[in-house]
């Protein structure tokens, strides 16, 4: 329990709440990097997944690339890119996007592939064209799985954005790095628990998104 006491003492110290090294700044950086990486990964993963899922082509290639990206050790990618192009936001983005694309891409692909063929027949029977079937039928039906992939990606990104501190661009990981260097354990605890809290918050956010975005009919089908 003293873990939480330590956290409380640290977080309630007003010194943590101001200046360039305070919680608001670090938290802001962390959220910003994570959101940017997730947005980029979504922009790559969803369209590619939708097209490959819809046409049924390139599925094997998609899965292979996603597999490969999943096996890549993020920290190695980050440090290699830092050595190649120097310290900055770009290496962190490359590493985080490489981490976030596979779950989004594969879930989108699987979601679209999993749409009931009878529904697609019905949509075509109603005179929908290929892109209409994709956007009006396959995308909404696949949405729960796509959101699930985005949630998986978001949690991994939030947790891994911690390593941004190791290449000197801030974020909540900074508290962990500095705390370790100065042997101030309360700082390490503070930084770590803030990351945990942020990840839990992201999970809750995706529950809400799911509630509001997924069509009511699909939600009922899922609940039965």
């Amino acid at each position: 329990m003293n873990l939480f006491l330590e956290f409380w003492l640290w977080i309630s110290d007003p010194a943590q709440w101001s200046g360039g090294a305070g919680i608001p700044t670090r938290l802001g950086q962390h959220v910003l990097y994570s959101a940017q990486a997730l947005a980029l990964a979504t922009l790559i993963g969803v369209p590619v997944g939708l097209v490959t899922g819809h046409t049924g082509r390139g599925g094997f290639l998609t899965a292979s690339i996603a597999n490969f990206a999943r096996a890549l050790p993020t920290i190695g990618v980050l440090m290699l890119v830092v050595i190649a192009v120097g310290i900055g936001v770009a290496p962190v983005m490359v590493a985080l996007v490489a981490l976030a694309v596979p779950p989004i891409l594969v879930n989108t692909y699987e979601g679209v592939r999993g749409v009931d063929p009878q529904l697609k027949d019905a949509a075509q029977g109603m005179g929908m064209r290929g892109h209409e079937v994709l956007l009006k039928l396959e995308l909404p039906v696949a949405l729960p799985l796509i959101l699930l992939g985005m949630r998986t990606a978001a949690i991994q990104v939030v947790s891994t954005a911690t390593i941004a501190a190791y290449v000197g661009i801030g974020g909540l990981g900074r508290f962990i790095v500095d705390g370790q260097a100065r042997r101030e354990f309360d700082m390490v605890v503070g930084g770590s628990l803030l990351v945990v809290a942020l990840a839990v918050l992201v999970t809750l956010m995706f529950y809400l998104l799911r509630r509001f975005l997924v069509a009511p009919g699909l939600r009922q089908a899922a609940a039965k």
Binding site: G59, A63, S64, A66, N67, P103, V106, N107, Y109, E110, R113, G114, P144, L145, L148, G149, R151, T152, F206, Y207, R210, R219, A221, A222, A223, K224
Partner: peptide, 25 residues
């Protein structure tokens, strides 16, 4: 298994989806 997962998606399992993802490979 894809059909099953679709049906059970109400509770959002992180792992079931990853499981089938891998099955895809």
């Amino acid at each position: 298994s894809a059909a099953r997962r679709e049906a059970g998606a109400g509770t959002t399992a992180p792992a079931t989806d990853t499981g089938s993802r891998r099955a895809e490979a």
